[in-house]
Design a protein around this nucleic acid. Structure first.
Lengths: 250, 250
DNA sequence: CAGTGGTCTAGACCACCAG
DNA sequence: TGGTGGTCTAGACCACTGA
């Protein structure tokens, strides 16, 4: 087992950033840049704590956060080592806009509709409101490189966001707007399936009738447990797929 | 904010089960059974530690594990409360067999093929072996209630599992067999998409040609970073969808 | 202002693994 | 048998929240 030690860490005790977080960030950077080779041992926690002038629990907290991310593996009696395989991010609670943006796809959005409507039974159940109660409906077409990628229908409780005609939705994703509005996203329940495009859907997405479409339905909750969004989305299967990482539950 | 305290916890210091784990299990059970109502406050950590005869870090460790699962939310200056929405499990590194089994679908498996073959470029890249090198190919049809659900093609490095003709694969999932063989699953990289069925695929899955199919490709790694499986699967979109929970990355 | 969680320390003993 | 991570203790101070 290769082990090396010249790794240097700098901790700023005056910073408001917690010490364990400073350490875990620098460890993560070292792993990503290959300065900590896959499979190499990290050196025992006691020594590391001593060299850094930290207590062992603090060092453990830093290491644990990277174990939780899947970057490190601990083996009792052996040590802590860097995982070989490239771990990328897990499927995140991020918007399609951010996904495309990060992929350099220059996303654009066309807001097709933006209106208050009575909730259908499905929407009412998802959002936890009465059937027929007012909900905000936002219907958008997402484009990349000028080509349609997805048709997005989102239902929101009224009063949650001030969208002002929807211009903000052309420049940013819905999730980012929610975070900006002080809503803390907590969890989401998703279903991914597929079906054939109707003629109308095909026209919107520039696909022939009957073409396979990916469907995604998602209800998003904030940290108070309130449903803040129900989305019902269609993606062109020829142009889009869901790509993500899973970690085994320990 | 409702707060109640009659909750009773029993800790066994003689047990090999860690104290924080005993506590987190009992808390989780109380939440699931509704004895801890959604939105209710948990009471501060210091008192809880005192009443249980534990130190605060131990109690924190128990609470933190439930926060990580999405069952609890901490707010500084406020307290720890039970999340309102029903959190189910995240998308797990489990086999379709176990998924169906858990759903009471009485899964059955027909092994269509079980042979050593030269690796294609795609398989070689996924498993990290040379193109043309021997790999084990397992091809299965998964049925529920006698109806075909999915067509599963898995490639494995030779020598990883002793499958003995494949009978074991008719009674259990591939992942369970791997765990039984002492392989610790660590992570997987997945892609979910959709496409139209070819005539041949349609015949296997009892769908017409051109019917939408869900596709899933997955490479699974063990905790040493070794790729242990590459799967390329087809699901009937009319019968199956992927349903899972996401937690916001903190 | 009082109360909460967030962070940190400096020890301790144990269980597991390798040689 | 020695070294590793796994667990646990009994404190401490700080930052944030809400009344």
């Amino acid at each position: 087992m290769a082990k090396q030690q010249p790794l240097q860490f700098t901790l700023d005790r005056g910073s408001p950033v917690p010490l364990y977080f400073q350490l875990s960030q620098q460890l993560e950077a070292a792993i990503e840049q290959g300065r900590l080779a896959p499979g190499s041992l990290l050196g025992n926690e006691i020594d590391l704590a001593g060299r850094l002038g930290l207590s062992r629990p603090t060092v453990r907290q830093a290491i644990q956060s990277l174990v939780d991310k899947g970057l490190l593996v601990r083996r009792r009696g052996v040590g802590t080592q860097v995982v070989h395989s490239q771990i990328k991010r897990p499927l995140e609670l991020s918007s399609l806009y951010d996904d495309l943006d990060a992929a350099g796809q220059k996303p654009a959005t066309r807001v097709l509709r933006h209106a208050v409507e009575p909730a259908s039974a499905q929407v009412a159940a998802a959002l936890g409101v009465a059937e027929g109660a007012d909900v905000l409906l936002v219907e958008r077409l997402r484009l990349a490189h000028g080509e349609p990628m997805a048709h997005l229908r989102n239902h929101l409780p009224v009063g949650l966001l001030e969208l002002e005609g929807g211009e903000a939705l052309e420049r940013s994703g819905l999730y980012r707007l929610m975070r900006t509005a002080g809503i803390t996203l907590h969890s989401a329940r998703q279903t991914i399936g597929a079906r054939a495009a109707t003629a109308e859907e095909g026209e919107l997405l520039a696909e022939p009738e009957g073409a396979p479409l990916l469907t995604m339905e998602r209800t998003t909750f904030d940290d108070t447990g309130r449903a803040v969004e129900f989305g019902s989305h269609l993606y062109r299967a020829s142009r889009y797929s869901f790509d993500f990482q899973l970690l085994a539950r320990s």
